[in-house]
């Protein structure tokens, strides 16, 4: 199976479900070192995305993901809206055929990461979603020769590990940076949602 419009749609729908189910947890994480809205933001955004994709005719995965990104930008707000929105748009723009193989999806995910890093200027270690996405993209690309399923599984695992590891970091970007050393000891909400989104991809491509 290759990554086509239906798979892209399934990914986004699964991500929406995961984010909605974990909205309270994400908000709680954001409450500790941020402003207690990350789960609410993503739930609102992905609910809008699900509605926007309903009946949306797409000739390939790219269109689905661009639509996803555009909708997130329009509905999420905050820091995560533009960041996730731009990432999905970049991933979508990189996928111009009717379907993509693992190598192509890996390259597209790398574009998504680049979009986030360009917009947010966060480096790995700054305690942001980059700390989940960066290792996930690397793992995906490394495992791409094994096919979509194994690559996505590797990415999900790397994202989860990366998210968990943010707990030990001191934030240098985003709201948590205002806390200085007090940000240490709390897992980053954005990294956590990134792990959820990549786990959704692995589930769909399994």
């Amino acid at each position: 199976m290759n990554f086509d419009a239906d798979a892209a749609r399934a990914w986004v729908v699964a991500a929406a479900a995961a984010v909605t189910e974990n909205a309270d947890h994400l908000t709680q994480l954001d409450s500790a070192i941020g402003d207690a809205d990350h789960g609410v933001n993503l739930k609102r955004g992905f609910t809008a995305v699900t509605a926007a994709l309903d009946g949306f005719a797409a000739d390939g995965p790219g269109a689905v993901l661009v639509k996803t990104g555009t909708t997130l930008i329009s509905k999420v707000g905050g820091a995560s809206g533009p960041l996730y929105g731009s990432a999905f748009r970049a991933i979508g723009k990189a996928l111009d055929g009717p379907e993509a193989d693992a190598a192509a999806l890996g390259a597209a995910l790398r574009d998504g990461l680049a979009a986030i890093r360009k917009l947010g200027a966060a480096a790995p270690g700054d305690k942001t979603m980059v700390d989940a996405l960066d290792p996930a993209v690397e793992a995906f690309v490394a495992a791409a020769p094994d096919g979509l399923g194994p690559a996505a599984e590797a990415a999900a695992q790397a994202a989860e590990a990366g998210a968990k590891a943010t707990a030990e970091l001191q934030a240098r970007k985003g709201r948590a940076s205002y806390l200085g050393a007090r940000s240490v000891g709390h897992q980053d909400p954005g990294a956590t949602s990134t792990a959820l989104i990549l786990r959704a991809l692995a589930t769909v491509l399994d």
């Binding site: 402003d35 207690a36 809205d37 609410v40 933001n41 930008i73 329009s74 707000g77 905050g78 809206g81």
Partner: peptide, 11 residues
């Protein structure tokens, strides 16, 4: 005005 404690969206 955005949502509570959430930046407004570009639109």
């Amino acid at each position: 005005p955005g949502e509570v404690f959430t930046s407004p969206v570009p639109d």
